[in-house]
């Protein structure tokens, strides 16, 4: 039933031509480009499955290019099904996985376009978010801040990004969600068969990996808090298709390492799909 709900939601989004994110990976940090004055709208459907249950969420994101090197984003969720004990994760490179409304600045502080279709670039991200729910996994949810840095190489054939970030939730009513240091690495490739010139569609495939070190939640007066962290490594494929102003990407991550603290929840997989449109 939940799966049907997700498919229905994604179908509706397609029908109404609402759209999604950058032209890079889904889960890994990237270095998106947007023209000065450019607008990108995206809609994403995402799910995280644990041993016991699965979450389903739709998320809408608006991107605006203040300059060619600075863009602002605003993302809001529609949570269809929450997890009782949600894993702490970003869930997506450009948006939170949980019910947070997030505004962020993306600053491309380095860019070197050194050949046809080729460039090195680095981007810093700073975001603030506010929760849409009071309690998450039986813990009061506060506002949070997120910072990350990503550097990458793009060409017509190969892509690679390396990045790291940190999300910190503020305490609310003597309770605090655990923080999240994480890192990501992405390798991308576009086969010759998809090397058709614009405006023909082009596709690229990515292998994405994500390493997360989520901290446990804290409670005031907690006696047995050890400040230990879970360690997760997730790997999976994603695909990106671009046609004119449209983009669609979808992919999945599967845990290959889960060294969890006693209160952390074990994951089975994450899946995501994004639809994008550049105005």
């Amino acid at each position: 039933m939940k799966t049907y709900f997700l498919i229905l939601g994604i179908g509706l989004l397609t029908l109404y031509q609402v759209e999604a994110q950058g032209h890079g990976p889904i889960y890994g940090l990237q270095t998106p480009t947007l023209a000065k004055g450019g607008i990108n709208m995206s809609a994403a459907g995402m799910s995280i499955a644990t041993e016991d249950d699965a979450s389903y969420m739709l998320r809408y994101t608006f991107f605006y290019g203040i300059t060619e090197d600075l863009q602002v984003t605003l993302t809001t969720p529609t949570v269809i099904e929450r997890l009782e004990n949600a894993p702490r994760t970003r869930g997506n490179s450009m948006m939170p996985s949980n019910g947070d409304i997030e505004a962020a600045l993306w600053y491309r502080f380095f860019s070197n376009a050194f050949g046809v279709g080729k460039r090195f670039e680095s981007t810093a991200i700073l975001g603030v978010s506010a929760p849409t729910e009071d309690v998450r996994g039986q813990v009061n949810v506060g506002n949070s801040i997120h910072g990350a840095i990503s550097t990458g190489y793009a060409s017509r054939t190969w892509y690679a990004w390396l990045g790291g970030g940190y999300q910190y939730y503020f305490e609310k009513d003597n309770q605090q969600l655990g923080d999240l240091p994480y890192a990501s690495m992405v390798i991308g490739y576009r086969p010759d068969v998809f090397m058709g010139d614009y405006p023909k569609p082009d596709w690229r495939v990515f292998i994405e990996s994500l390493v997360e070190f989520p901290g446990d939640n804290k409670y005031t007066g907690q006696q047995n808090f050890t400040d230990e962290r879970s360690k997760k490594v997730l790997v999976g494929p994603s695909f990106l298709g671009l046609y004119g102003a449209w983009g669609i990407s979808f992919g999945a991550l599967f845990p290959v390492v889960q060294d969890l603290t006693p209160k952390a929840i074990k994951e089975n997989y994450r899946v995501s799909i994004n639809l994008s449109y550049w105005l």
Binding site: H23, T33, L34, A35, G38, S111, A113, F114, G115, V116, G117, K118, R119, A154, S155, R156, Y198, P199, P201, D202, L242, Y243, G244, A245, W246, G247, S276, W278
Partner: peptide, 11 residues
Amino acid sequence: FGMDCAPCAYG
């Protein structure tokens, strides 16, 4: 230089 994707070309 540096233009690698269809939305880049479109923009």
